[in-house]
């Protein structure tokens, strides 16, 4: 702690200022439940993203495989001719 961190001890700021230290507020709704739902939403979004990415990657790989198969069969036909 530096000297700058220390309030002037000669100044008494009174009780309301000291009470700020313990300031708390009761939530109106069930906050833990809201938090759990928020976490579940994030997990769902993450899973969906992973799933979509996997789907896109698989589709691309399939397309590549089809392309190479097509090309190689075309080459074979040419060679046979």
């Amino acid at each position: 702690m530096t000297p700058d961190d220390i309030d002037d001890p000669s100044e008494d700021w009174g009780e309301p200022i000291a009470e700020l230290r313990d300031l708390e507020l009761d939530p109106r709704s069930d906050l833990p439940l809201r938090v759990r739902r928020g976490i579940e939403r994030r997990f769902f979004a993450r899973d969906l993203l992973t799933l979509s990415w996997t789907g896109i990657t698989k589709a691309f790989m399939e397309w590549l495989a089809m392309l190479f198969t097509g090309l190689s069969s075309e080459r074979k036909q040419k060679e046979e001719q």
């Binding site: 300031l23 906050l31 938090v35 976490i39 994030r42």
Partner: peptide, 30 residues
């Protein structure tokens, strides 16, 4: 929750958004 909520409320003065902010803080923390 009580402490986080009080802080979100009085730091931002956002009456309606305070609970949303507290929720976001906890989700972020998780």
């Amino acid at each position: 929750q009580r402490r986080v909520l009080a802080n979100c409320r009085y730091m931002t003065n956002a009456h309606h958004d305070a609970e949303d902010l507290a929720q976001e803080v906890f989700v972020k923390a998780y």
